Simulated assay, not measured.
Amino acid sequence: MNTFVTLADYAHARAGDKGNVLSIAVFPLDDAHYAWLLHELTCERVAEQFATRRPSTVRRYALDNLRALNFVLEDALEGGVNRSAGLDRHGKSLSYLLLSMRLPTPPEA
């Protein structure tokens, strides 16, 4: 039986923007969960989570020395701060969209 957890139970995140590009850094709450994040938090899963934002590409950068993952989503901000009519044109709250993702439970949990 495979159970699932919410990413927010195991990590925190910070979002930023540059034009129409969204960047979200994810940090495990416990360094022991970094390997699990590397395995489970893939570009494909992030792209699926952000499908309604229609990013053209999703890239992941592993920052092993910081025990963090940084995701860069191109074209995810409806044109960027000067074009979007959205409430959060900078995408600062979009880290919560990522943290709401459901993932398989870590092996040691």
Rank of each mutant, 00 (worst) to 15 (best):
R54T: 15
A85H: 09
P106V: 09
G16W: 03
L77E: 01
Y96N: 12
L37M: 04
L99D: 06
L38P: 00
R59P: 01
F71Y: 07
S93E: 12
L87E: 06
L99V: 11
L41V: 02
V21F: 05
R14K: 15
A25C: 08
N82K: 10
Y10D: 00
R45F: 02
L38K: 15
N70K: 14
A51W: 11
I24E: 01
E78P: 09
D17H: 06
A35Q: 14
D64C: 02
A35D: 14
D17L: 05
D31A: 13
A76T: 05
A25L: 10
R102I: 10
L29C: 07
S56P: 00
N20A: 10
R89V: 14
C43I: 03
C43H: 06
E108T: 14
N20R: 01
E40M: 08
L29Y: 14
C43Q: 15
L98R: 06
P104K: 15
A32F: 07
L38A: 02
S93Q: 13
H33E: 09
R45V: 06
A15K: 00
R14T: 07
Y96V: 12
R89H: 06
D88G: 01
F4N: 13
D88H: 06
V5T: 12
G79H: 00
A62D: 12
A76V: 01
K18W: 02
A51N: 15
P107M: 13
D9T: 11
L22P: 03
N70R: 14
P107D: 15
D30E: 14
D17C: 03
P28S: 06
I24N: 02
E74I: 03
D17G: 01
L69P: 01
D75P: 02
D17I: 02
L87A: 13
F4E: 14
V46E: 03
D30N: 12
V58C: 04
T42H: 03
T6M: 13
R60C: 03
N65K: 13
L7N: 05
A76Q: 06
D64A: 09
R102E: 13
S100H: 13
T105E: 15
L22E: 02
V46C: 00
F4C: 10
N20Q: 05
L69F: 04
D17F: 04
